[in-house]
């Protein structure tokens, strides 16, 4: 989408562009990945789209491989009116898309460093493009850890990818769940309980974190205890969004517009605000 011309939009930025749904993949009991035709759409890991499903529009992170020119994926949890409409789409249906929006994960700046990726719940979705990027540029990074916490075993996303990444010798993948029954033979505990498994050079390490806000607060605290620099811990924030253009005012978090200054922000930039209630 030709969104910019010398930094200014030339096309009505409120207008969705129509894409075709290629496939709806059921990830868990309530979460679906909507795969749409790319049609020249380009994005960077960590960016999001506004998806329009006739009854409404919602911000959804892009969860596919940025190097894949054919398909763009969005992983959606069915919670409300619009997300239900999105999850009910079928192959061949049309969908409205505005984007990509937002500040991406700063992958280039972290080259040469060890990388710790920490995901909680649906927070794995905006991190998946980042992981694809790290793995296709594996030589540019030191050790890579992926720590992922889900609520229960049935909430685990992207099982195939997790298995594939786990099988690689050049990335350490740990998955934990908050609650499990006896059939689960993996880790049980919050995602922060995986952090002691991380063995990196803290002075040359970067972390990318996404999950519920409280999980990100606890996680960043543990990463700082590990010796990581707050300026190299990046988190992806979420707030109510209506326009994604920095105009509607909804997504403000202190001075930041999450839609354009975020969603990815360095922890050092917002550490204080994160500890304050109702910001």
């Amino acid at each position: 989408m030709m969104m910019h011309d010398n930094g200014k939009s030339v096309i009505n930025p409120y207008l969705p562009r129509i894409h075709k749904v290629k496939r709806i993949k059921r990830e868990t009991h309530d979460t679906f990945t909507i795969e749409i035709s790319a049609d020249g759409f380009k994005f960077m890991p960590g960016q999001f789209n506004m998806l329009y499903a006739f009854v409404g529009e919602v911000p959804i992170s892009i969860s596919s491989d940025p190097a894949d020119g054919n398909v763009i994926m969005h992983t959606v949890r069915r919670v409300g009116h619009t997300t239900s409409a999105l999850c009910s789409l079928k192959a061949g249906d049309s969908i409205g898309v505005r984007g990509p929006f937002g500040n991406p994960w700063p992958v280039r700046e972290q080259e040469g460093n060890d990388i710790v990726v920490v995901a909680g719940g649906l927070g794995l979705a905006p991190l998946r493009p980042l992981i694809y990027h790290l793995l296709s540029n594996r030589g540019r990074y030191g050790r890579i850890y992926l720590l992922y916490g889900a609520k229960t075993p049935r909430d685990i996303l992207y099982r195939n990818e997790l298995a594939r990444w786990r099988a690689r010798f050049d990335v350490d993948v740990y998955v934990t769940v908050d609650k499990a029954d006896e059939r689960w033979h993996g880790n049980v505990g919050v995602v922060t309980s995986l952090i002691p498994r991380v063995h990196v050079d803290p002075l040359h390490s970067s972390a990318f974190v996404c999950g519920p806000e409280v999980m990100m607060r606890f996680t960043t605290r543990e990463l700082i205890n590990l010796g990581l620099n707050a300026e190299r811990i990046f988190i992806s924030m979420e707030r109510n969004m209506k326009c994604a253009l920095g105009i509607c005012g909804h997504c403000q978090f202190g001075p930041e517009f999450i839609c354009k200054d975020g969603p990815v922000l360095s922890y050092s930039r917002i550490a204080r605000l994160l500890s304050i209630r109702e910001v």
């Binding site: 200014k8 939009s9 253009l245 920095g246 105009i247 354009k260």
Partner: peptide, 10 residues
């Protein structure tokens, strides 16, 4: 707000 950001409000 409306004219000097990344996006102009038409």
């Amino acid at each position: 707000v409306f004219l000097n950001g990344t996006f102009k409000d038409q």
